[in-house]
Amino acid sequence: MSTPTPRATSAATGSSARPVFVRILKWGGLLALAIAVIGGVTGFLVDSERGLVSALVGTAMAILFTGLTATSILVANRFSGTDFFTAIFFAVVMGAWIVKFAIFLVLVFLLRDQPWINPVVMFLCIIAGVLGSLIVDVVVVATSRMSYASDVTLPGE
């Protein structure tokens, strides 16, 4: 008598949405690299080393903070299959969201008056990073394939 091999169900892998979020993070990383290079060169031409550093910090802030939502969903999905999954999921995602904004606010207030920061270059890089990550999100979600009713566990599984 052979024992049935366990199937990779949604409870084991987290969620059917996992590949989408992983792709979003990968493409977001590539976008950050592109903005860092273009913004860094432009910043360097505008305000030498000060502009370069501002561009890199701005890009890092934008991509880190926008990517944190996808990361928090991936982390929260590790609890799928547990009794309080819905509560844990929204607590993790919304908790990460509010902490992220608190840290972003503190960073903005701290960096604003630093002598080694060019505020305009940094602002433009943050805007480019945020808008670019939105484009990446939409393109990845629009081109990803997800079946309807994918997170189903049949009786006996």
Binding site: S10, S15, S16, A17, V20, F21, I24, T66, T69, A70, I73, N77, S80, V93, W97, V130, L131, S133, L134, D137, V138, V141, S144, M146, Y148, A149, S150, D151, V152
Partner: peptide, 20 residues
């Protein structure tokens, strides 16, 4: 509940636009 995966992705897009 079986649509949770799809809804998560759509929720993510909604959050991304509002947080931007």
């Amino acid at each position: 509940p079986e649509l949770a995966g799809r809804l998560q992705v759509l929720m993510y897009i909604g959050i991304a636009f509002t947080e931007a």
